[in-house]
Design a binder for these strands. Structure first.
Lengths: 210, 210
DNA sequence: ACCTGAACACCGTTCAAGT
DNA sequence: ACCTGAACACCGTTCAAGT
């Protein structure tokens, strides 16, 4: 993904957004392990210590990066759709947003594992679920379940993308070459299947209550 | 959890198991961020470089730690039970195993995010699901969904345990004190609910096919 | 408001050499 | 078979001081 930033305007002072933008660029091009404060600083032609004027620490920075990734998810118009389609569409939009940056899911996953990022993702899933008017506790638990599945699945997908691109020989039980395209179709199917399981389960739950 | 190791037998040479044991002890007492190679080495009264005779690198070590945590899950007798109870019991046993070590879920999550640990967890869930004789692709996708939900939920639980113990003020929307006990009941309920959603969804799926 | 310079207290990993 | 010693190439973070 090309972060359409206005050109850094050589040797200017920086803002929070500049820093996040540069972090996203490093992330997408070199991956999470290479996203260090020192490297980020040198990208911005600044001392590492300068970053701590903008962010309290690296965790906070990564939370901001997570928010940026999630906020890139396309907006879904829920005007006419039932809760099930709404949730499915949100899940797919969020998956695409995570996939659009290298290691995107892992960044968001680890931020949210620390209780920081991913707030917007939960909000969006919750809003979609809200169209189903479930009990509030059910709604919360369901949103969490969708989010956990989502982050786990996509981060697994991206790990395999990474392994593939490095030519790692996992030597699975495959007979056919299993090219990249059919692989990615399988991933998508398996993702949609998981989402469908959760939706079907929720539907049973709501039927039981009426 | 008290790892019932035979006492280190002062200033003996070490084996892989010793190293993993010591790692588990550090993990449980001080948490994942404090589980460094250098600290582990000094716990074993050994130079950091010595660890690299036992393990290729830190990732490999952490994968072994993950395996140990998961293998602590109690064995379920599936003799009489249907697939749904089998899966539910497995999920609960795995959750308990993860909860029995500080940061247990996060260790396993990050190992499996790198494609290393958690193999046994997948195997156990798959075996339980196998009693339902689903299509093979369905079985695989479902096992993955359960695992993702499981790891995500428990690591979230443990993050909150951590935050609570540090007295972090998250200032949620609570009216009541919400003591530790009721909190942990809620967590368990929300976990069981997620598992139930997935099971119900699968049941619908299997009904549709017969 | 934003950054420099310099330092502190660490990391994971490699490798020749020892016993 | 298992470990030492010493080094390499890094980390995140703090803080006084500069403009």
């Amino acid at each position: 993904m090309t972060t359409n930033a206005s050109p850094p305007a050589k040797s200017q002072r920086h803002s929070r957004v500049d820093v996040v933008e540069a972090a996203l660029a490093i992330l997408d091009e070199y991956g999470l392990p290479d996203l260090t404060m020192r490297r980020l600083a040198s990208t911005l032609a600044v001392q590492p210590s300068a970053l701590y004027w903008h962010f309290e620490n690296k965790q906070t920075l990564l939370a901001a990066v997570s928010d940026r990734i999630v906020s890139g998810a396309r907006v879904i118009d829920h005007g006419t759709s039932d809760w099930a389609s709404a949730v499915r569409l949100e899940a797919e939009a969020l998956r695409d947003a995570l996939l659009s940056f290298r290691d995107g899911a892992e960044v968001v996953l680890s931020s949210q594992a620390l209780g920081l990022g991913a707030g917007e993702a939960l909000t969006r899933l919750t809003a979609a679920l809200h169209r189903g008017d479930f009990d509030e506790r059910v709604e919360r638990a369901a949103a969490g379940a969708f989010l956990h599945f989502l982050l786990g699945h996509v981060s697994h997908e991206q790990q395999r993308i990474q392994a593939d691109s490095l030519g790692v020989v996992t030597a699975r039980h495959e007979a056919k070459p299993s090219d990249v395209e059919s692989r990615s179709r399988q991933e998508r199917d398996s993702f949609d299947f998981g989402v469908a399981l959760l939706i079907a389960g929720l539907a049973v739950q709501s039927d039981a209550l009426r």
